[in-house]
Design a protein around this nucleic acid. Sequence first.
RNA 1: GCGGACGUGGCGAAACUGGUAGACGCAAGGGACUUAAAAUCCCUCGGGUUUUCCCGUGCGGGUUCGAUCCCCGCCGUCCGCACCA
Length: 877
Amino acid sequence: MFSDRYNPRETEPKWQRFWEESGTFKTRNDGPQPKYYVLEMFPYPSGRIHMGHVRNYAMGDVVARYKRATGFNVLHPMGWDAFGMPAENAAMQNNTHPATWTYQNIATMRGQLKSMGLSLDWSREIATCDPSYYRHQQKMFLDFLANGLVDRKKSKVNWDPVDMTVLANEQVIDGRGWRSGALVEQRELTQWFLKISDYSQELLDALQTLDRWPEKVRLMQQNWIGRSEGLLVRFDIAPASNKTDAREIEVYTTRPDTLFGAKFMAISADHPLAKSLAVGNPGLQAFIDECHRMGTSVATLETAEKKGYDTGVRVTHPFDPNWTLPVYVANFVLLDYGTGAIFGCPAHDQRDLDFANAYGLGNTPVVCPLDVDPATFVITDTAYDGDGRMINSRFLDGMTIADAKNDVARRLESETLDGRPRAARQVNFKLRDWGISRQRYWGCPIPIIHCDDCGSVPVPEDDLPVKLPEDVTFDRPGNPLERHPTWKHVACPQCGKPATRETDTMDTFVDSSWYFARFTDPWREDAPTTRRVADEWLPVNQYIGGIEHAILHLLYSRFFTRAMSKTGHLGIAEPFEGLFTQGMVVHETYRSPNGDWLQPAEIEMRTDNGVRKAFSLATGNEISIGSVEKMSKSKRNTVDPDDIIGTYGADTARWFMLSDSPPDRDVIWSEEGVQGAARYVQQLWRLIGQLAEIAAPAGTPIKDISEATALDIRRLTHRHCARIADHIERLRFNTAIAEIRKLSNALSKILGDVQSPEQMTPQFRLACREAADALVLMFAPMMPHLAEECWERLGHSGAAAYAPWPKVDPALAREDTISIPVQVNGKKRGELVIERDADAKLLEAEALKLDDVQKLLNGQAAKKVIVVPNRIVNVVV
RNA sequence: GCGGACGUGGCGAAACUGGUAGACGCAAGGGACUUAAAAUCCCUCGGGUUUUCCCGUGCGGGUUCGAUCCCCGCCGUCCGCACCA
């Protein structure tokens, strides 16, 4: 007997070739079936794919293949997020052109993805660095400009001195550039902005409609948008204390109800008043400098003491001209938010309390919890920010917080100061406009020409795309477009005079904010989208990617979709109907005695007295096994997808990746685990081989099955079909796989129990045919190559990729006999095996008959019997 | 500091959101086959007792006939953040 081994190294390329040559996964926009768009976040072409990609794309492929099998016209495309800094860094290091580097990487990674056997429509492949893509982006920029969605303004920006570029606020992490790690400086530049803040309220409101998004992501976006309702209040500067031209200070507060608890006012170190007061006040200037030095790092601020500098200026209380408050410059007040000035109510804000305690400013509680006596209510170290009634607040006393807020607002709104109301209600958002200007080469050029006479002039549509010049060098930092000898010099499209091109390029988040729409008709040359086609496919039904994009990419895409709809390129609001954020791939770490990290590939595992130990393959020395961590180059705990696929095959890699953990949690990649998956591949291959020998011919209709064993097989099959489909629908790949294993285990057992050829009746053979076909089709989304090979072995002529998902007969899937636990006083004491839907009376009677129950009843009658049909019987003694 | 999530065997996890805790797998141990190994197959596998039960879902309470699930209070781990007034 020859060894019945499945060889993925031969089989996988064979079927990949078949799918490619047959155009199996090409998607027609005019397909008659209902549409389903599944998309995984497209990769940056960094050079090689990593295991995180394998996990991401394996999940998406299961969904794509499953949906195709259940009758949908599935769109499942792939492309490249191909602009960005690494290409320029590589250009500097290796003296290669960013385009060369990028397209080489794309070629490598495309090959790697193809070796995974993904059911992608490669005819729709796009790369964002290709002029055929970014020309449309330039067109849309101009459309946005014409529709008031673009702004050009001077603003203080985060300047990364190493990368010589501007960073979005979001790209500054702990005061450092998110890529270079350099300390970020503040610079004033004229920048292009997309007016995402016009959509703050809408982006916030529409989060509620995204019911197939993780709650966590919606919450993160909600906090990011950061809506607050508050009051702008103008405080007069007491003339006697005034040292500048300013006559008032305006604050923004969300707690106007606490106005009678005010003890001080604090302004930001960047506040105009602080700046003018610092002139001729070295002490204040020193304090302001100190604030700037402190930086904005969260870690610093967390531990930083609340500090302030008394300016000597005093403001009068809006409700009492005889009541003045000291004005401090404080290190915890931000200029960007509100007005850059606050009034401090120490009793009801922890930061204000910390500050007041440090400077001996005292506190007066003005909100008293309902269950506390106001006479004894005292604040010392912990501010009270809960609900309650107003106290110590004159005309507000006794009111609820909400009523007090309204009352204060009403009174101050109606009061006039210098011809304007004393206060105004205002809704504030944290969300700021999206600065898209980047001072670099490898990005989409902003299609604008600057003319001394005409200002910023859009590049005429006929002149699009504005292509990047190819003859550039990277021997110096800064933007090669800026120093290119000819590229930026053009005639003004309006007046014809010499003018210069905008040399900034767009943030790469712009590129990824609409690629999902381009996939719907990537062949369209004269427009970004074909509106009808895009509106049919969109929104993406299932989007899958990493949690790291929870805010930026997803929020920008939501904005962009609206902006594209406003400019006529789309007719929808939300780009992603369903969102799934998958967990990371993590691995053990290995460290040699001298502290060097070793790669998993450099390690051999052995078991010594039941204890796992690691040894270096090179030296044979024992290596200590460290904690499980995210795969990273620094810890060298990475495994290479090429190696894994070369050794075990893509199916095994995909299977293990999906089987071992819930998809939203981290999965630990382990050699033992992947070997287990490889064993199972062989097990399935043998099982299908056995079934192929005895099964009725392919295509034999199945009906009139009455024999017990055959019926058992059918029930088993249909029951599992129903469950597996349900798990996949809910993206519970790990439990779907557990069910598949249960089915194959059960079928193996049944075949093993067959003693004689007489037991293989025609009915039995028919049931085996049905079971084998179903099993193969159900693991096909995870292990498509093995499935094709098995499908062929089972005698089918067409490919498994075209076969419909097994149809479930509900009558067969339902269990007629079930076992119901019987408890006495909540503890399980027995079990009833009884027909499904038996009524409560019968269940109770049968349960009371059980020996174990009788014994515990000890001749007494039960106090109470709880019966939940099909669930449980509980006898209370 | 603020916000969120999570805590179940040696390990990854399951358990229809109140109804048999530990499915499925990994690791381990024992056995069969083999000259041997690999592969394969069978058995055991939460703890304590040994053939009767008892204890077990981070800890302490509570609600309930019944709690991994709900409530209150702790402890621990992880993640996000722009001190957002």
